[in-house]
Design a protein around this nucleic acid. Structure first.
Lengths: 248, 248
DNA sequence: AAGTGGTCTAGACCACCAT
DNA sequence: TGGTGGTCTAGACCACTTA
């Protein structure tokens, strides 16, 4: 029996395996898209049976840390367009097909974290942050304004050029350039009114109702890595939430 | 090998077991809160190993059809206050603790399904429906107005008296009186403006922004059983959506 | 053909609950 | 004490991918 697998109190073996694998994933021991060792090899390394390894990986799959492909292997979950669409982008046309959003970066600034922001990002108030404003479009029509807040410490050399120059989703950038793998989000929604500037950006009337989405993006061990406030024009689009459909 | 377990094409054994159990659950063979036969007995009945039965039940648990209790057994999932709060009620105070909502039925009427409603409920346009309006309160403050639409055929003898006289959640009523077990919901959210009547009910100003939630409640085999449109005053409360947190 | 994950089995033992 | 679900094992075989 492997001592490394033991947790503080009595706990199932597979939880120990899961914990070790999670730590290796969080440490970036395997690159995104790369294959993990086969189940047989992991079983051998940890000194447990394959069934126990499978049970651990089952949970990693459920938490979207890894992806299994029969006959090929188990891979570090990678951020791409389809993952964005199915797990991280929740706006759909009121009538018609789901589509990929187009993102235009409007402003990129450096600032300091407000106390509330700092608490949500688990950093100290006043710590340096990036503030990024994006305009999201669907079918060529401006639909939402995004305001992101990131701790500079977590994205050391980020510049507007890097941000704008990317040819993939921003979570793919976080993952490949900074080793930060966004696993899930926690969102709070409310209705609000458009202010003058957003009114202009979204092409709605003053006093038009907008959907406000406050998102916290989380990585391994539930660590928050991004705040985002979106203001959405819901005349032609809606936020969807299919709950209980075997996960998120 | 049991012929009954076979599906149309080649499919894993445990999928067949799951299918049979789901059909028995949908047919109401076991009452809500009642124990299913033990895994050993099910394995014997279906002529498969316990491991195969466990895998089938794992999926039923993930889809919230049943609940397992170590040492006691596996039970038909039952609608109670805590299940409501964790899976079907998504409004939380912007600051403070989650609370159970108080529901007051304002109106109870009979009518006919509009074409759009009929499509969503999978009934024919013009079929008889119930239309129910509720006022939801949290901490003694009116927070939302609910408009429900139900097919009369699915709730044969429903009356206002039965509805108001219940001492539990409405999904508990659906389950115990009509054998309809709501398993999950699909929701679409947008921002809208308060009309005159809702303005009065929620105590907000004319032109105040409200959160509009359009819900479809689904039972076994993804059959829709209830439509609900909620208008929410989000000055003090918000809609939360924690996605990917090992199921929705 | 070799390697991977997916299914299925049979059995041992443990943890928990009711009685 | 007996019954239940939970864990863990070892091995066989299947399905799929890659070379």
């Amino acid at each position: 029996m492997n001592q490394l697998l033991e947790l503080g109190a009595v706990a199932p073996l597979y939880k120990g395996v899961k914990r070790l694998l999670t730590h290796e994933l969080a440490a970036g021991d395997w690159r995104p898209g790369q294959a993990l060792p086969s189940e047989a090899k992991l079983a051998q390394r940890f000194g447990v049976s394959i069934g126990t390894v499978r049970k651990a990986i089952d949970e990693l799959v459920a938490e979207r840390m890894v992806v299994r492909h029969q006959g090929r292997g188990t891979f570090v979950a990678s951020h791409n367009a389809s993952r964005l669409l199915f797990h991280f982008f929740h706006l759909v046309p009121r009538a018609g097909e789901r589509q990929y959003p187009k993102t235009e970066t409007l402003t990129f600034r450096r600032g300091r974290a407000e106390p509330q922001e700092a608490a949500k990002l688990r950093i100290a108030a006043g710590d340096p942050v990036f503030r990024i404003r994006n305009l999201l479009s669907l079918e060529g029509r401006a639909v939402a304004v995004d305001d992101q807040v990131l701790a500079q410490a977590r994205f050391p050399d980020l510049t507007e050029k890097i941000l704008v120059g990317r040819d993939n989703t921003i979570y793919h950038l976080y993952q490949t350039r900074y080793g930060i793998n966004v696993l899930r989000t926690s969102e709070r929604l409310r209705a609000t009114l458009a202010d003058l500037e957003v009114t202009r950006l979204l092409g709605v009337k003053r006093g038009a109702p907008l959907l406000e989405i406050n998102r916290v993006a989380l990585t391994y061990h539930e660590v928050p890595v991004e705040l985002r406030r979106s203001l959405v024009n819901t005349e032609q689009h809606e936020y969807f939430s299919d709950l209980g459909k075997s996960e998120g």
